[in-house]
Nucleic acid binder design. Structure first.
Length: 897
RNA sequence: GGGCGGUUAGCUCAGCGGUAGAGCGUCUCGUUUACACCGAGAGGGCCGGCGGUUCGAAUCCGUCACCGCCCACCA
């Protein structure tokens, strides 16, 4: 006997354990079935489950469970990402609380500490994914820094380096002064900053009293200026081009140059050029062959090394002593000092408030500093070309398709990817340097030593590159590194390329694009044929969720409170194409009601002795009721499958919800009650067997979304052995004999009951007050129908009897029109004639209005001539029907007197 | 500055050429062989504005307005 309510907290983990122990999630490389593969986007090993995970993993698990039921050999590849910066920072904080530090432990000590942390606490997210019901193939779990995956990383790096697609370069890089590492363009985000625009007078050399004024938001970088640029056509400055300016503070003579980069509309039209600290200035510097002194170090503190020798005292303009005091000062403090000094010297023309976008490091949150360093780069431009082609040709498609534009826009203008990071935690770059700086890129230290011996003609001591690779470098290999590449494993042959990649739009560039590039380059094929892009999870008001705002929904809390199924169904119901998911506690609570509804419906079935009957076939159904619910069920199967086929999780949820609640519970079970009450009745057996069949199909339809409650019911009813629903076959639409007639009949009964209920509710008739339902002008089929459904109508429409009305309509009755029949409800004493007249008049007006609209349409000669025949015919028919109704309503009104 | 998405019932959204829909919320009623995490009924909409195409536009095209996001830009 089922409990009064479903208790997910106790039941769900047991069901999950049973599935996992039984190997229900396991891929089977030996099977003959067609594979279906999803590579999980590996969560950070430091992570814990948040709503974003709940969304993405629910979607994936729905697809996975659905395809598994369809008989595919499903591989859902699990794993975690080492997440370089995030993990290193986390362990560093841990060390800090223990009174030690990364530096104190040294590189090796620190790394073993991180590994130890990973062994002890790195499994949190995997445990939490189990609570979400995610049916991942756990024994295949991988970690991006596993031996195998690390081999893959080295193999890719070395191969690309030998192909010239990975190389070292000295150029400006986005530098994070807080973490003191290079970062890629993607890790930079613009933030609006309210700052100032300082207008600074640079004296023109050999022209005493003449100044050229530049405007800047970063006066501290002027220490590294090596030119002032004006636009070639700017008449204001034409005479000054070719002359020199005296750089205030340092006294350096810098040329005044003409360059298109200068925009006469902005600032003063003259712009200071600091090639070593600004990306635009860098290109100007290259064009004009300017010196590029760095004046900020890796911590973004002033460093004078490259300009020390050039400092010159100039009366009233430059003072080497002042500049020397700036050494090792932070960039923002130096800015203040420099502004004060310029003011003192009378060289500060004016200061304006100025709001502008400043690039920040997304991780550390500090403004990035363009810095001249040597880094490793990947030539993404070359790798991007086949990836673009693959999407253009449809080999890989995006759902929703609009994201292809985003992908193309970025890929077609892709910049070299800086892949080295000045961190310790990550894949160490497999490059070794000889004493003279010669670089040996090899898979192992031994191979590098071998290469060095060949190069130098003798054994030579090498030093390995200190840097590690961008975390996304190893993520880019995930679709094949997890399958054993570079070994030629049978998994690799079978499960690459995968089918679907599910992820958020925020990492299309970070991850999707790079997997495409690497997959095509190393496997010769795309890593997946479909990329399903979902939205972001937001709170009920559409705000981004964040811990600081306090509006974050904790999925584990929701699971504890409402059960996993409620959370999952909510997510599915809200996941429309290209839309963010606005998730609130109330919504989850609401869908928990759906899970309960299903549970109670099943309980009701159980209480009535409804049990699976494997011999039952839909084609054997003979009754209108059973034929009708089976036809509805077949439609629901069809709708659910079509929705999943198109990644319409919202439509899938809506279809199964509607069928369960409206068709099965509200009408079928209610109509079934008379038959169930009398187990000897002729219909009882067929009704029960149909109910059992319907429930069985329904559980299968619902399983991908709400796996726990469906498996619990499946097991309890004994549809199969415990834990078998997960591998049960997905239902197919089926034929039902006489479906059309059954639908016509049930449709009529439902409309009759609804009509009577509406009248009674509007007349405030108490439910205890039963009334006869008299059918005036009813054709014979209708009278027969009414007789067949006497019990159900009696129950659901509170009728004492249902019969044709022969003769006069008594007075003091309520009336309603249903097709050609007028329903008469003698409710003597309860009917207020005036009120009834108002009600009927309102109805009449509504129907007459509809009729009028159609009549006007049909009077339009163009419509009749040009609209398709069926549409015209349909309208004619409708008009006739509506006019009939109006006439009957008018007759009813007349009878009221 | 370039691009993408959105604007439909109080809220969240579906519908994307032929009778304006759902869920929630609101109001009224309710101890009926499961379910109050429930049942029955009702109210609620110039489908953002303006133009166009069409026999017919929420739906297609153009344009404007507002909202959100992405990319670029430290004068």
């Amino acid at each position: 006997m089922l409990n009064k309510t479903y208790a997910p907290a106790e039941t769900d983990p047991k069901l999950y354990d049973a599935w996992e122990r039984a190997g229900a999630f396991a891929a089977d490389p030996d099977s003959n079935a067609k594979p279906f593969t999803i590579m999980v986007p590996p969560p950070n090993v430091t992570g814990s489950l948040h709503v974003g995970h709940a969304l993405t993993f629910t979607i994936q698990d729905i697809l996975i469970r659905w395809q598994r039921m369809r008989g595919r050999d499903v591989l859902w590849q699990p794993g975690t990402d080492h997440a370089g910066i995030a993990t290193q920072l986390m362990v560093e904080r841990l060390l800090q609380s223990e009174g030690t530090s990364r530096e104190a432990l040294g590189r090796d000590g620190f790394l073993s500490r991180v590994w130890k942390w990973k062994e002890e606490s790195g499994g949190t997210i995997s445990r939490q994914l189990r609570r979400l019901g995610a049916s991942l193939d756990w024994p295949r779990e991988r970690f991006t820094m596993d031996d195998g995956l690390s081999t893959a990383v080295r193999e890719v790096f070395v191969t690309l380096a030998k192909e010239g697609l990975v190389y070292r370069d000295r150029r400006l890089v986005n530098w994070d002064p807080k973490f003191q590492s290079a970062i890629s363009d993607l890790e930079v985000e613009s933030r609006e900053v309210r700052g100032h625009l300082w207008h600074i007078r640079y004296p023109v050399a050999d022209m005493p009293g003449t100044f050229i004024t530049v405007a800047t938001t970063r006066p501290e970088t002027m220490l590294g200026d090596t030119a002032v640029a004006v636009h070639p056509t700017d008449a204001r400055y034409a005479d000054l081009v070719g002359k020199h300016a005296i750089l205030p503070l340092t006294g350096r003579r810098v040329p005044i140059i003409a360059d298109d980069y200068s925009d006469p509309e902005r600032g003063t039209g003259a712009v200071k050029i600091t090639p070593a600290h600004d990306f635009n200035d860098f290109t100007v510097g290259q064009r004009h062959n300017l010196p590029m002194p760095s004046i900020l170090d890796r911590a973004a503190q002033v460093t004078l090394g490259e300009i020390e020798g050039e400092l010159a005292a100039v009366e009233g303009v430059a003072d080497p002593a002042f500049v020397r005091r700036l050494a090792r000062m932070g960039r923002f403090e130096a800015r203040k000092e420099i502004v004060a000094e310029l003011e003192r010297l009378g060289l500060l023309e004016k200061t304006e408030p100025h709001t502008h976008q400043v690039p920040h490091a997304d991780r550390s949150g500090v403004p990035i500093e363009p810095l001249m360093t040597v880094q490793w780069y990947c030539n993404a431009g070359v790798l991007a070309k086949p990836a673009i082609k693959a999407v253009e040709s449809g080999r890989t498609r995006f759902v929703p398709q609009q994201w292809e534009n985003t992908f193309f826009a970025w890929m077609r203008d892709i910049q070299p990817w800086c892949i080295s990071r000045q961190l310790w935690w990550g894949h160490r770059i497999p490059a070794w340097y000889g004493p003279d700086g010669t670089v040996f890129v090899e898979r192992t230290a031994e191979e590098a030593a071998e290469a060095a011996r060949a190069h130098y003609g003798q054994p030579t001591t090498l030093t390995q590159d200190d840097d590690v690779l961008d975390t996304w470098f190893s993520s880019a290999l995930w679709p094949f590194s997890t399958l054993g590449w570079p070994e030629k494993t049978r998994e690799l042959a079978r499960y690459y390329p995968g089918d679907v990649l599910v992820t958020g739009f925020d990492i299309i560039f970070f991850w999707v694009a790079r997997m495409m590039m690497m997959g095509l380059h190393f496997m010769g094929d795309v890593p997946f044929s479909t990329v399903y892009i979902h939205g972001l999870v937001r709170d009920e008001r559409g705000q981004k969720m964040s811990k600081t705002k306090g509006n974050a929904v904790d999925p584990l809390e929701m699971i504890a409170e409402y059960g996993t199924d409620a959370l999952r169904f909510t997510v599915a119901a809200l996941t429309g194409p290209g839309r963010d998911v606005k998730l609130g506690k109330r919504t989850i609570e609401n869908y928990r009601g759906f899970v309960t509804k299903l549970w109670n419906a099943a309980r009701f079935c159980e209480m009535n002795g409804i049990a699976p009957d494997p011999t039952f076939k839909a084609v054997d159904a003979t009754l209108p009721l059973t034929r009708w619910i089976l036809a509805e069920l077949s439609d629901a199967v069809q709708e659910a499958s079509a929705a999943l086929e198109q990644y319409r999780f919202d439509e899938y949820a809506a279809a199964v919800y509607r069928f369960t609640w409206n068709s099965f519970c509200d009408w079928f079970l209610e109509f079934a009650k008379p038959a169930l009450a009398d187990s000897q009745s002729a219909d009882a057996s067929e009704v029960k067997r149909t109910a059992a069949y319907t429930l069985g199909v329904l559980l299968r339809l619902l399983h991908p979304a709400i796996p726990f409650v469906t498996e619990a019911l499946w097991d309890d009813f004994g549809y199969g052995p415990p834990g078998s629903l997960i591998r049960e076959h997905w239902p197919e639409p089926f034929d039902v004999p006489g479906a059309r007639a059954a639908r016509d009949e049930l449709d009529w009964v439902v409309r009759l009951i609804t009509e009577v209920r509406t009248v009674r509710a509007e007349m405030n008739v108490p439910p205890s007050q039963r009334s006869p339902i008299l059918l005036k002008d009813a054709p014979r089929e209708v009278i027969e129908r009414a007789a067949r459904w006497r019990d159900a109508i009696g129950r659901l429409a509170r009728a004492s009897e249902v019969r044709p009305l022969n003769g006069e309509v008594p007075s003091g009755v309520a009336q309603a029109v249903l097709d050609e029949t007028t329903i008469v409800l003698p409710l003597s004493g309860l009917i207020d004639i005036a009120q009834e007249r108002t009600r009927l008049e309102r109805e009449r007006a509504k129907v007459a209005g509809d009729a009028e609209k159609i009549a006007r349409k049909l009077e339009n000669a163009d419509f009749v001539a040009r609209a398709p025949e069926e549409v015209v015919a349909e309208n004619r028919e409708r008009l006739a029907g509506l006019r009939g109704e109006v006439a009957r309503m008018e007759a009813a009104l007349a009878r009221l007197g």
